[in-house]
Design a protein around this nucleic acid. Structure first.
Lengths: 105, 105
DNA sequence: CGCATAGTTGGATGGTTGTCAAACCATAAA
DNA sequence: TTTATGGTTTGACAACCATCCAACTATGCG
């Protein structure tokens, strides 16, 4: 289980987080991570119907923005939300975005 | 005081709002609108050091995303935040973003 | 070792973005 | 009606983005 480079909590930039969340595919990934806990890259590709390299691209953006944590275990990479870090830095932001994704139409 | 076309509250899209807020210039505009109440396009250009056409461009994006309300009065156009509409559609989102803009470094 | 699996990387592509400058439009004042 | 002022629109341009495909890397299993 090796860690990968992530921005420190204090280095997370608001505009980058908002930018990362402003894509429908990434927002869906985040919503799924919020409810399912963890996810591999392949899961995202299957669930969202995008090419695996596209999913990988989105994961990188989410990771570099500080939204998700990626840890390698064996030959899989598990992604999870950095809930505490985000809540520490931008209180309430993630929660409001997540509840907004549940809003209808 | 003539109104301009704006999206209805129910038509405001989460990804578009996040996208609109993911630019430093626009985020600064929104922060100023939150504290100063209203602003003209010229004010924004002066305060942010961008060309007036650039400011106009950003206002359009904010307006079309449903973040700001634009009303014409004489030859000036006043922009204001659609706080109630946003709070109605995405509760807590605007507040958390605004308080996040106050976060240091 | 050889093979399969999970992701990443690089290239290509079509589309979007932020910016400025110059021209344009609309309103008010002289 | 002419002039000045506040914004918008258009064009141009460089940068970036989402996507796919193909090739590559890395890890684990026989």
């Amino acid at each position: 289980m090796r860690p990968l480079p992530h921005p420190a909590t204090g280095d997370i930039q608001l505009t980058e987080v908002l930018r990362a969340l402003s894509d429908p595919v990434r927002l869906e990934i985040v919503a799924r991570l919020a409810s399912h806990g963890e996810m591999t890259c392949g899961d995202a590709g299957d669930a969202l119907g995008v090419h695996k390299s596209t999913a990988s691209h989105h994961y990188r953006i989410l990771r570099e923005a500080g939204v998700v944590l990626t840890k390698q275990e064996g030959r899989l990479k598990f992604m999870s939300l950095r809930r505490e870090d985000l809540d520490d830095r931008f209180p309430g932001l993630l929660d409001s975005v997540l509840s907004a994704t549940h809003a209808v139409a």
